[in-house]
Design a binder for these strands. Structure first.
Lengths: 348, 348
DNA sequence: TGACAAATTTGGATCGTTCCAATTAAATAT
DNA sequence: ATATTTAATTGGAACGATCCAAATTTGTCA
């Protein structure tokens, strides 16, 4: 029931030094003598002192607040959950703590949480912007010199750092693989067409088709929500097509899982009767049945990189925009299936 | 570009009032005249003032910090991700912002992040404790009067509020359902046996068996990591048993998905050849193929309830422990399968 | 031993807000 | 009109740390 907070002055008094000295000890300054440091540290531990960062921040620039913010648009998507874990990982080790907020694709909510984080004096922000985010939404932040790193989705025209995965290369590698397996009718399933990520992956898909001399067929591009349910929906529509596809590159892993589900509901076995490739390489991808062939972007690694970039900018006091692109590689597992030779329709 | 911060004094000066008045309008006090309030608000907007909560907290008790902490042991498990979303949801609407940290089951990490959150002056904490957490780990927090709500896993002997789901009732309802379908060899798969949650679910399982006059067979209890991979592992072992089970209650949905994967790898179709029931009702449960029969605990709802309980305690200044148990219901989908045809008749 | 430099320590002043008691302005009662 | 409420406003002292310049102690060297 201790209502009284213990402060530096009380520590100072108990240790027989001045509050300035205590402060020096707290900051690990080399100016203080080894023996007094020991004494003060002992008293600190003994009295159960807890540092008041709020008070400290008042006097320091808020790049020292040791708080970073991270806002994602859908934490229930394990891609973002893992991204957050990656960020948390490096941020924790650096002695920071993170504000984490979920926007659920609402720009209003996003504006609110960013404002709130700003009031709390975050030293930096990592954001996977909600659809429809505009440069103006981040403007005040960058204007006040707070580093911002945009991940996953870009914001056209915003003068902030970004970390995007190489969507073009990934999509095109995936399609090349399907082509190599003998597929010619390859669909592109899922995702919202009005996003930059969708556009980039679609272009990668088209590039690969073109270099394989396969004509692009717009009816094979079936968009939907970038979720498992969206995947079920997309494959259902794909299967009803006149000249149905034999394989698909999916917008992301969630869609790919949905596509597998939908395939089975249509008595088709993913990997055997239809080639499926995802995007993201979420953890479940490797343990799923069939194991998902997917473009690995390593969400945790991406989170870690974003955090490192942000911390670098915070520490250097230099928030000049920097655009990183995360490398990407195709990991071939089972869902893309074996090479086609004929119409092999086999049921188990 | 370090733009200097605008403070109340500057607002006061620009609006021709005193800083005290500005403070009053900031807090929405009814003491200030409507016309001056309007004038001040206008200036605030005009100059792009941002409130400095750190400074405010210095003067107020830290139950007003508008920060709550949430620490989970595994954010990559979608149960916890959803829990966090539920918490974020109510907490955001109440004008709070949350510190979110992941411990990865490390008590050391947990200790660190809790200490760090405390330095930042959180008004309350929601924690799903890492395995091996002791009451002492939360002691300092409660001693300083900061409300704590423990979720999912309990901590024996800690004087804090808790919100646990009704594991006993859920497990037993699940087993009753399998019995009603005609199963007699029912396994309990996955989970770490040294946790309270495991124990509770196991007892529920046993209770249901007993009331169905089925002898408990310890070899049917196969523990493993509570993850998808753990599920694959557990079912592999179960399938090699002499008198193999025909159905299983799984420790959680992640395990259940793994069990489905493992079943298929063994040429058994979940739902047709083997009944599978999960626990948690993660979002993927309803869209999976087969759709997972599971004990619904509504993770988001649980997060919301935990947050509400915490906010109530923060606002009332009353942190007396309160133990809530979350109701639970069996949602029957496909993975538990139809009634067995070869059901042996028994006296009713 | 005294002078001078280096190593430590320290007393305010300060950060941006809230709180309190005190002041002033406006409204009402006498 | 004056006295008395009531409504609005205000200056200054907190809150708990850091920072700076100045003061103190210690060490070194002629």
């Amino acid at each position: 029931m201790t209502k009284e907070r213990i402060t530096v002055v009380e520590i100072a008094h108990a240790a027989g030094v001045s509050k300035s000295t205590v402060s020096l000890v707290l900051q690990g300054s080399s100016l203080v003598n080894e023996v007094t440091r020991a004494k003060v540290s002992a008293v600190i531990r003994e009295l159960g002192y807890v540092y008041n960062r709020g008070a400290a921040n008042l006097r320091q620039s808020n790049s020292k607040s040791k708080i970073i913010g991270i806002v994602v648009n859908d934490l229930t998507n394990s891609f973002f959950a893992e991204l957050a874990v990656g960020v948390d990982d490096v941020v924790q080790s650096a002695g920071y703590v993170q504000f984490l907020s979920n926007t659920g694709e609402s720009v209003d909510r996003q504006r609110e949480v960013i404002a709130s984080m700003r009031e709390h004096g975050i030293s930096g922000l990592i954001v996977s912007p909600a659809r429809g985010t505009e440069p103006a939404d981040l403007k005040p932040l960058v204007a006040s010199g707070i580093p911002v790193v945009v991940v996953v989705r870009n914001i056209q025209g915003a003068k902030v750092s970004s970390l995007m995965s190489d969507n073009h290369a990934g999509a095109s590698a995936a399609v090349e693989h399907l082509v190599a397996l003998g597929h010619r009718r390859i669909a592109f399933l899922g995702g919202f067409p009005d996003t930059a990520v969708f556009a980039e992956r679609l272009v990668g898909y088209q590039t690969a088709l073109k270099s394989a001399d396969i004509a692009f067929d717009a009816s094979l591009v079936i968009s939907s929500a970038p979720s498992r349910a969206g995947g079920v929906d997309a494959i259902d529509r794909a299967v009803r097509l006149g000249d149905r596809p034999t394989a698909a590159l999916c917008f992301n892993d969630a869609v790919a899982f949905g596509v597998c589900d939908g395939l089975r509901a249509n008595r088709l076995e993913p990997g055997a009767d239809f080639g499926v490739i995802g995007f993201d390489d979420v953890i479940e991808a490797k343990t799923a049945v069939p194991a998902l062939t997917t473009v690995s972007v390593d969400p945790q690694g991406m989170g870690r990189r974003a955090a490192q970039l942000l911390l670098k900018q915070i520490n250097s006091g230099n928030a000049d925009p920097e655009a990183l692109v995360g490398s990407v590689r195709l990991v071939v597992r089972e869902s893309s299936g074996p090479a086609r030779r004929d119409v092999e329709k086999r049921t188990a």
